[in-house]
Nucleic acid binder design. Structure first.
Ligand SMILES: [Zn+2]
Ligand SMILES: [Zn+2]
Ligand SMILES: [Zn+2]
Ligand SMILES: [Zn+2]
Lengths: 158, 158
DNA sequence: CAGAAAATGATATATTATAACATTTCATCA
DNA sequence: TGATGAAATGTTATAATATATCATTTTCTG
């Protein structure tokens, strides 16, 4: 069993760093501006492996001394999600940083209801099953939402 | 190709009728009260093959002359979703009547972004792919959300 | 540097959802 | 049958999530 969730006590600073580096690259290649605000929001999202709500981000920015209003946060989130740097978790109204923003994918999200952590899978079995089901009913896919709630391995066994 | 979506111009009254009959049965077998309010909300949801928001239901009830507040609607929705008579579509914040409330299932929802119709599939390929993926990462499933947005066959071809 | 485009600031408001307590309805059984 | 407790609904207030609109600032381009 390969655990999709990060090990407890892993070097999380490296996650943040590498996510930032990837984000820079993506923005660069898309000629998109990775502004201060966008970087801040992106970094805040990566401060945990949980999904973060817009208002949690707002509070965090406020705590940092910024005077920020909701539209500012939502604009940053819109930018980040459109570039694929961040995904929206529909069933949580919350946002989650993407591991692999450099390649197109249909992601699936495992959400632990105990510890709150989220893990993104890019599982071809699931994607293919969805695509095949769509094809079989003549449906043209534009976007998919696959969110799986339950207990991560750590929480199930401890 | 079997179309999951109902034919245009089908006898929709029959859908509503049969849904009501099924709902009665389910409530009966669960010793749950299918009260006036719950029946009204359920019927309103079945007035279309689209997903309906809580406030659309509120407006519809108001139009019918009832003086109804949000908690009333949300309570009815909670009751109906807990019994499996209605499903919540997370990506729309809206509710959709279930075809087969009598059997446990992991449903998948096709949502047409053109005509707004929703169709529920109970596709074992998809369910199994999700279960298998969860098992492979040691994840214990509690609930799944699978929502597929795109064009239904009618809308794609016309 | 001027002018246009993009991003952010600021204010207001829309939409979705729940908390808390009062009242009514309904099943149960003394 | 009618007292009684549980379930359902009514009522009021407010929380949580999200967007519209216009003003200002920043950045890009020529
Ligand atoms: Zn980490
Ligand atoms: Zn967990
Ligand atoms: Zn119908
Ligand atoms: Zn359609």
């Amino acid at each position: 069993m390969s655990d999709l969730f990060p090990k407890k006590g892993h070097d999380h600073d490296r996650c943040v760093h590498s996510a930032l580096a990837q984000a820079e690259k993506v923005c660069d290649s898309e000629n998109a501006r990775f502004t201060d605000m966008r970087r801040k929001v992106f970094t805040l999202i990566w401060q945990s492996h949980k999904a973060v709500t817009a208002y949690e981000l707002l509070d965090a920015l406020t705590a940092e001394g910024q005077r920020v209003q909701p539209p500012t946060v939502y604009r940053a989130l819109e930018f980040l999600t459109e570039l694929g740097l961040v995904h929206r978790i529909e069933s949580l109204n919350a946002y989650f940083g993407c591991d692999r923003p450099d390649c197109e994918h249909l992601g699936q999200y495992f959400i632990c209801t105990d510890c709150g952590r989220v893990a993104e899978a890019v599982n071809e079995d699931m994607s293919n099953a969805v695509r095949k089901a769509a094809r079989s009913v003549g449906f043209t896919i534009q976007a998919t939402t696959v969110e799986i709630k339950g207990l991560c391995h750590d929480c199930a066994t401890h």
